[in-house]
């Protein structure tokens, strides 16, 4: 699967579609503040969707590793966690740039921003934890256990706490659903770009992760050959 090329072609097509039609599609003009910057929706928001999917794959393989400790499951788990964390860093930095022009300051202490920062720090600790252990067996096992904790911490930090208080993100009063976006409110034209954008960016993350997995498999083989 990871060496097949059809979904890589799909990734290229979807991303090119997003990066062209995303600028061309008619967007609603809500007020004079938002203007064209609503198009960031096709770039900033898919980072978080992609991160959630990639980190879910990561925790799936972490559980698989704990049930049946094959190193290959750990390769998948750690590669997807890395890409997911990179997506979250890109999401938080693009968010800060957007916020600077939309809310007046790059960091407003918005509950969603703070929650995302905490979630990222928890994932960074995953890499510190793994890096601190010499023994591969121990590293993989403890990494997998911590990965499960880190994934479930995403729910309070990104999904629950921001809903309990006022947020600058759309729908942030707690009663209007997801504080990141409200799917029912989205303009029809924007949906024709947004959903392909989410799929495209996520597939890009999957692609990078699988390359990392393949590299790790090759590296392992190389090391084994050398030791013999």
């Amino acid at each position: 699967m990871m060496r097949k090329s059809w979904w890589k072609i799909l990734t290229v097509l979807l991303l090119l579609y997003t990066c062209t039609y995303g600028f061309y599609v008619k967007v609603p003009r809500l007020d004079d503040r938002m203007q064209e910057s609503i198009r960031n929706f096709f770039f900033h928001v898919p980072m978080w969707f992609g991160m959630m999917i990639l980190l879910f794959v990561s925790v799936y393989y972490a559980v698989k590793f704990l049930r049946d400790p094959q190193p290959i499951y750990d390769y998948y788990s750690s590669a997807f966690a890395t890409t997911g964390t990179i997506f979250s860093l890109l999401g938080i930095s693009t968010g800060a740039i957007w916020a600077n022009y939309q809310w007046g300051s790059p960091w407003t202490g918005d509950p969603k921003q703070n929650g995302a920062a905490i979630a990222i720090l928890i994932y960074l600790a995953y890499f510190v934890l793994r890096g601190s252990m010499q023994d591969d067996d121990k590293k993989m096992r403890i990494g997998a256990v911590y990965n499960i904790f880190a994934f479930f911490m995403l729910f309070p930090t990104l999904w629950i706490l921001p809903r309990l208080t006022e947020s600058l993100h759309p729908g942030g009063q707690g009663s209007e659903g997801n504080p990141g976006l409200n799917g029912k409110d989205m303009d029809m034209n924007m949906r024709t770009v947004f959903y392909p954008a989410v799929i495209g960016w996520t597939l890009l993350g999957v692609w990078i992760s699988t390359l990392k997995v393949r590299y790790q498999i090759l590296n392992e083989k190389h090391l084994n050959n050398e030791s013999i």
């Binding site: 890589k8 990734t11 290229v12 991303l15 990066c19 600028f23 061309y24 393949r214």
Partner: peptide
């Protein structure tokens, strides 16, 4: 659309780079 052109150039450049890494790894495999 100037911004769009720049974004397209960036994304195609990065995708080409990604494809070349993919090919390198496939060759090693």
């Amino acid at each position: 659309f100037l911004v769009m052109t720049i974004v397209v150039v960036l994304i195609t450049g990065l995708l080409f780079y990604l494809i070349s890494i993919d090919r390198k790894i496939s060759k090693l495999e």
